[in-house]
Every structure is written in C-alpha cells, then in structure tokens.
Design a protein around this nucleic acid. Structure first.
Lengths: 187, 187
DNA sequence: CGCCGAGTTGAACTGAATCAAGAAACGTGG
DNA sequence: CCACGTTTCTTGATTCAGTTCAACTCGGCG
C-alpha cells in the first residue's frame, strides 16, 4: 500500500482525506502460480498493482503465443485496452509465481473520480504510466537488436528474470526459444 | 474544430458550457513543409490535433534516425513523454507537408482541468489515446513481418503514404530503405 | 522408473543487412 | 523554366542473424 501511495505521490499530491477514500476502495488478492487473472473474451474491470510475484500478459495466435508484457512488483497491470474500451480482452494474464496484488475495480475507480479531488488525476496517471511503458518498448524494437533487448531485460530485472521460463522471455523479445538459447550461450 | 469535438464526444460528454471554455483555449497554427514543431532538448508544452498534413516524430541516434511515429489528420500529436514529465524531449517532430493543426498548451490544459467538469477526463483521454496507439504498434512488432507492417500502413493511410519518402516508411517499419524497396517490388 | 516439457545444439534455409553502383526525382539558383 | 547537383530509390552480390526442423539432454513429477 505504501509503495502504491509513493508512486502516486511522485506524480500528484493526494490529500490525506482523499487517500482515505481511495484506499478504502483498494482490495488485496493473492494468486497461486499459474492462476489466470483474466482470460480472452472477458471484459477487464480491474487495474492491478503488483506487490509480489510475476505475471505474463500474452495473446494466443493461431501459430504461436505472443508475450506482450511481464508484470513485476511495483508495476501496474491490466488488460488495459479492454478496461478502457470495455470490450472483450484479446489478451490473457497469468501469474508465473505465487503473487500478491492490490486492485481496484472500474466501478470503484469511477466513484473515486466523482468523490475526490485527485480522482481524475489518478485515472490519468494510470493511462500515462501505461503509455510511457509502451513507448519505451516500442523504441527498443526500433533501435535494439534481440540480444540488446535481452540484456536490457536482464539488467532491469536481474533476479526476477530467473523465474521466467526462457520460452516466454524469447517470445517477449520477439524471437524463437532456440535463438534465445544461442544468445545466452554466447555471453 | 468539429472533428476534434466529435472525437472527444465518442469518449465523454462535454457540456456546451465546458466546450465554450475549452475551445477558447484552442489555438490554430499552420506549418510549412519541413518545419519543426519540436526539436530535441526542448520541453514539450503542447498537444496538437492535426487538421491537415503529415508529421514525422523521430529520434536521432548516432548510427541512424529512428522514425517512431507519423501524425496523420485527426490524430493527436505531441512529444508526449516530454509533455508528461516536463523533461527535454529526446524526439523531434517535423512536418512532411504543408500542415494545419489545433493545439493547446499545458498551461491552458491545466486551466481546463480546474475550470471545467470534463477537463480531467480530457487529459485522461489524451493519455488513453496515446496508449492505445502504442499498444497496437507493439503488437504489430511482435506478430507481423515487415511486409505485413507495410501492407497495414498502406491499407490504413493509402493516399497519405504516397507523400512520405520511403526511407521514413522503412525506418518506421523497422527495416532498411533497400529492404522496403524490394518488398514493394514484389507486390 | 519412465515420461514429458523445457532447454540445448546442429544443419539447412530464408529474409534482411550491408556494401556498392547506377537511375530517377527533387529543389535550387541562374 | 531549365540545368545542375544532391538526395532518394532501385537493383545486384554477399554476408549474417534468426527460423525451422530435428535429435538429444536434462530435470521434475507422476
């Protein structure tokens, strides 16, 4: 909870009163390894904040699964396009480890929009955070080689990455598991 | 102006009163071909809505330029990471054609946040639009081949693409100009 | 103990990068 | 408005990184 508040505080000021209201809407939940927090066809109605654990957000395509994203501690997580448009999610999110999250429902978030000063700002911050994350990744696809993308990932999440099966890392980087295996062999 | 209102209206309801206030803050501007609307090191303080023309958002790297984005009519445009964080932009935006835009400054946007009902929602919608756009592009990098990315672009902006030099299209797709030339030769 | 999925390794193949040269298009100044 | 020079586009030959297909190993779990 403190982590979440800290992150929000770096962006906006939240009055104590508002925070009381907001935190009353936050719920906690734990997941076992391999639990799904959302599957395709369902409409996302939550935004999560990860306290512990790792998640994988991916899309199932006819030929292969594509890993869009990992969720690490202190990240926001959601099938956010589905959340925004309230249309069925094309992505699944699965926990890769035992995990603990804080979440808020869309309904409660709307309450917050209405009843607090800082509410709408929080909605904006979610969107902005999701945007900045995507931008970073887009740039990496344009300027880095697969090897560089792997090394960046290792640098940013050294310990956590060890818990992620290599085939998922490969898919996130945009290469085959075989190619990743060879990249690792060369280092 | 109507186009912008229409797009906002598909997301939120804006009262006539609010729209009066908001539109009083909107400014118009025209650019000649090759004008820069922002260059590196500067802090972005505007969000643009394109009425006419095409823009290119890119980053200058030691080895090569990387085209992050094109701005087409009815799109929002900004060095948005810089706008959000108020840190110097790493990207440049240049007009590829004679262009006409509506823009709003950060200062005026903040006025809107304070003085209208729908204001904060508009800030959110900017962020959400930018996010959804990036997500789409991320997925395309993961699941489509360069050829498919080119064909998608052609399909979405058939007439406008003809005004964009191929080297920029190549850079946007993530390949060399030579490779794009060969792709086109095969079609 | 045997099975199964994950990871590794090898060989052949493929698509894009690179280097290079020539053709076409573009704008700039006379 | 044309002529020149520059930039952009095309095309070819070669190289290289990643894919594909396949066989084998390892580790965990029934």
């Amino acid at each position: 909870m403190e982590n979440l508040l800290n992150i929000l505080n770096t962006k906006i000021t939240i009055s104590e009163e508002d925070w009381l209201f907001i935190s009353s809407k936050l719920q906690e939940k734990e997941f076992k390894k391999k639990d799904f927090i959302i599957t395709t066809q369902n409409i996302e109605d939550k935004i999560y904040f990860i306290q512990e654990g790792i998640f994988r957000l991916y899309i199932e395509l006819p030929e292969k699964d594509v890993t869009i994203d990992f969720g690490f501690p202190n990240n926001f997580l959601s099938s956010y396009s589905s959340f925004l448009t309230q249309t069925p999610s094309i992505a699944c999110i699965q926990s890769l480890t035992k995990s603990k999250v804080i979440f808020i429902t869309r309904k409660d978030l709307q309450e917050i929009y209405l009843h607090t000063q800082s509410g709408e700002s929080i909605g904006r911050i979610f969107a902005e955070e999701f945007f900045r994350y995507k931008s970073k990744r887009e740039l990496s696809f344009l300027k880095d080689s697969p090897t560089e993308r792997y090394l960046n990932l290792v640098k940013e999440q050294p310990q956590l990455i060890q818990e992620i099966p290599q085939k998922y890392l490969a898919s996130y980087i945009g290469i085959t598991p075989q190619a990743l295996s060879r990249i690792r062999a060369k280092i």
